[in-house]
Design a binder for these strands. Structure first.
Lengths: 110, 110
DNA sequence: GCAACACTCAAGTCTTCACTTGACAATCAA
DNA sequence: TTGATTGTCAAGTGAAGACTTGAGTGTTGC
């Protein structure tokens, strides 16, 4: 099970797919196995496993195998990577906005 | 110019593409026109415009045309949608985590 | 007016990727 | 041991979408 790195790029790509988002929504409620996740999604077990690999490879979930079942649970590292990316863009935007406001508020004595 | 709605689904799909993320990075520094954005991206102007349409349709940027040039700037609505989605998942996860901690910390007198 | 510019639109190509199928491995339970 | 369960692997298919090309529209400046 390769665990490359939770970069924002990988995370956003992972979050772009509706099936994967549905899996994450389900896992916010409780950990689950692949065979538990598949039925409500109307896809094959094999497809679910592929999605789980994507999610795990970018740090959004962790899974551990005991016996023949693989239990998956949310992992916040991937979420943090995405949040940081967004927050950085947002703060840069707000900073520029503030500077603009300052400029506009300055008394026009120039 | 259709402006459907900044849903998290649309935003994550938009953020999943590296070229679009590069455009957003560029726009955090300053507003820009399509022809200004294209050269460093090594794609056609037409491709850039397609990306801009995607970004605008999910609320990540706004653009206004004056004369023959279309100026694009970041717009925080789309970012907020994505942030809210992540925050909701994260808080649900943390709440469950807290309950688990409570359970484990409870004196084992049962 | 005319040429250069900035963008728009409509096909069409080509790659990526979500999904399925079918075979296989490992584990559990009777 | 045997059969059912759970997951893994390897192709292969089909659709979505990123990108290009080429033609066209409106704008600016000479």
């Amino acid at each position: 099970m390769p665990r490359p790195k939770p970069t924002a790029a990988r995370v956003f790509h992972a979050l772009g797919d509706p099936t994967r988002r549905a899996i994450l929504e389900r896992l916010t409620r409780a950990p689950a196995s692949a065979s538990q996740l598949a039925p409500p999604l109307a896809v094959t077990l094999a497809a679910v496993v592929q999605h789980l690999n994507v999610l795990e490879s970018c740090g959004l979930i962790r899974s551990e195998k005991s016996g023949r079942t693989r239990t998956c649970r949310l992992h916040p590292a991937g979420f943090a990577a995405a949040e940081h990316w967004i927050a950085a863009r947002r703060s840069a935007w707000e900073e520029r906005f503030d500077r603009l406001g300052e400029l506009l508020a300055r008394p026009e004595d120039a």
